[in-house]
Design a protein around this nucleic acid. Structure first.
Lengths: 212, 212
DNA sequence: TTTTAAGTTTACATAATTGTTACAATTCAC
DNA sequence: GTGAATTGTAACAATTATGTAAACTTAAAA
């Protein structure tokens, strides 16, 4: 019986992965938790404890082999398997994502793009053509994508999510301002840009107050 | 002497604000912590405790007045004061942000857009013209913006951030894959899309394993 | 008008989670 | 082999969340 890993640990994993990738590109072969902790600004102990949730990847007296650990974290995150993803909603953010985000390096493979706007349907984006959202059902039946990136207006977000759920999509990257209704068998990552702006606003305001 | 409010509480504030805004648009006048807790999927106790960090906004036997609480949280977040913001880097995400994000409702006012690419300089975006990054210094001296949205390539992110810091910018919304070096007098909100993708990938992988 | 009961916040005590400290066990390099 | 370095882990501390009793408000009933 495995003990469940806390979500706090999971949240930090991508960051470890990022730092290790950088070390790798710098040609650094090995690293101690102490040195990594200095670079990342957290305690060495936490790094060791976090990693130990998944097994012992280091060696006493030596440290961690960067390349090996990098690969192991990739496995933990599931990046070695490429899940098929579709993008629903090509407005602004959605479009930007297709260019900017390196899906292949983050465990996904973008296989379809959908919209309802006739002006957008038929557009070429990267190596894909924007399809009519009406066709999404047959597409899903054919391709069986795992994940959908939701980049649709707030008012239709939950409706679209529900439709996709019924078609078999159980994982969402949600960019819409709406909050998706929770379901047990669905996993969601929300990216609420507005919330980040407001948090930043709070920090700025607080700093100003303290200085006065 | 005020006790500092924990960052866990701050993280939740924008979400409260979002929900209250929705209640407001639905014409709901008052709400109890219990009902709000059911809608938001957290405990009523936590809502009460979070709000009480900033003062008593409710009334026993009555609950919380939605409009009043909405306004108070706006004040706490600092949304009533519009901080000037500039956007640095117009590629993909940066461009999308200008259209999609309602800065005015989140405490900011976008006053300038900058890039180094001659092809982009001069472009009209919303009601602004993309300016040459070379002009950013004099612009900052004139306009005194508070915050910069960093949407530049990873390799130059820290350099640009440092330059802007020297020019007086002490707050950043960072979209670049790089991690900005920490400074005491700087506040940063990071939006690492890649991290979110990887977290989602982990959740999917874990779910699949558990089901097998 | 007064009383009573139901509902709610506030404030505090308790529980659970998360992070840190400390150290024994192990390994590497010489 | 010996000593310095480093992990893995257990015990401890701090933080965060939950549960609950007391005080208060409203509204309905007497």
């Amino acid at each position: 019986m495995e003990k469940p890993v806390s979500s706090s640990v999971i949240k930090r994993l991508p960051r470890y992965y990022r730092y290790l990738g950088e070390l790798l590109s710098l040609g650094i072969e090995r690293i101690s938790s102490k040195e990594l902790s200095q670079r990342m600004g957290i305690t060495a102990s936490q790094i060791r404890q976090d990693l130990n949730c998944f097994g012992g990847f280091g060696q006493q007296g030596y440290g961690y082999n960067v390349e090996y650990l990098y690969g192991e974290i990739a496995k933990i995150l599931g990046l070695d398997f490429k899940y098929k993803a579709i993008l629903v909603g090509v407005g602004n953010i959605g479009h930007a994502l297709t260019r900017n985000t390196n899906f292949e390096k983050r465990g996904f493979n973008l296989v379809g793009i959908f919209d309802t706007d006739p002006q957008k349907i038929g557009m070429k984006i990267q190596n894909l053509t924007v399809l009519d959202y009406k066709e999404v059902k047959s597409f899903i039946e054919m391709e069986c994508p795992t994940m959908a990136i939701l980049s649709v207006p707030r008012v239709v977000a939950n409706q679209v999510a529900n439709e996709l759920y019924d078609m078999g999509i159980k994982a969402f990257l949600n960019f819409s301002y709406a909050e998706l209704a929770k379901r047990d068998d669905v996993v969601v990552e929300n990216i609420h840009l507005g919330d980040s702006l407001m948090r930043l606003c709070y920090k700025i305001s607080k700093k100003n107050k303290n200085e006065v």
